[in-house]
Design a protein around this nucleic acid. Structure first.
Lengths: 102, 102
DNA sequence: CAGTATCCTATCGGATACTG
DNA sequence: CAGTATCCGATAGGATACTG
């Protein structure tokens, strides 16, 4: 069943399927795109990604954090401030995502 | 509420949100990646995109076709043969998708 | 072979209310 | 402000059976 080696990489030893699956939801790409413009507070992120609910934004950010694409910065202030920032890995998504949006 | 103009494009006049939404499902990206290697018959596509069901592959291809990313070639033979091929527009997705998969 | 037609369930994501 | 907790409906997508 030998095909093109380049595609065996994509289809069989599938870390790339995982990263594609990461994009395969309604909001992740948008969040990454906004964050690629720079560090953002939770509330600002929520405002800029128009339509996203708080719950889903939290989930999205937690997933991105777990995958090492986003870093979370918590400031022990009152009122609380939390900022999110793309990691170096997260930043590698910027160009392809920008390109997908034309 | 003025932000970076580049992002206003992405977030407000949102044809790019549409194209991101197109990728935001479980299989579309995979299908496009395989097709970017060349024209494929329905059955071959189904075999190469491991795990996809016939129903969902059909749906995915219909959507891509409607959006002008894929062209459908029907051969009046017995047994029937149908091939799918990326359009020029569809091919523009290859590089960014490949990049997303690292 | 390349699909439809059904049916069915898991999950995704929205709304709302509440908290440190 | 930045979340959690809860509930809940829609729908994406899987399994199976059937057809031209």
């Amino acid at each position: 069943m030998a095909r093109h080696p380049a595609f065996d990489v994509l289809l069989e030893s599938c870390p790339s399927r995982t990263s594609l699956a990461r994009i395969a939801n309604k909001w992740t790409a948008m969040v990454v795109i906004v964050l690629s413009d720079g560090r953002r507070r939770f509330g600002d992120l929520r405002a800029e990604v128009e339509g996203i609910s708080g719950k889903v934004l939290t989930e999205t950010l937690r997933d991105l954090e777990r995958d090492g694409l986003v870093e979370r910065h918590v400031y022990a202030e009152m009122p609380p401030r939390v900022e999110y920032e793309l990691t170096a890995l997260g930043r590698t998504l910027h160009v392809p995502l920008q390109a997908l949006g034309r």
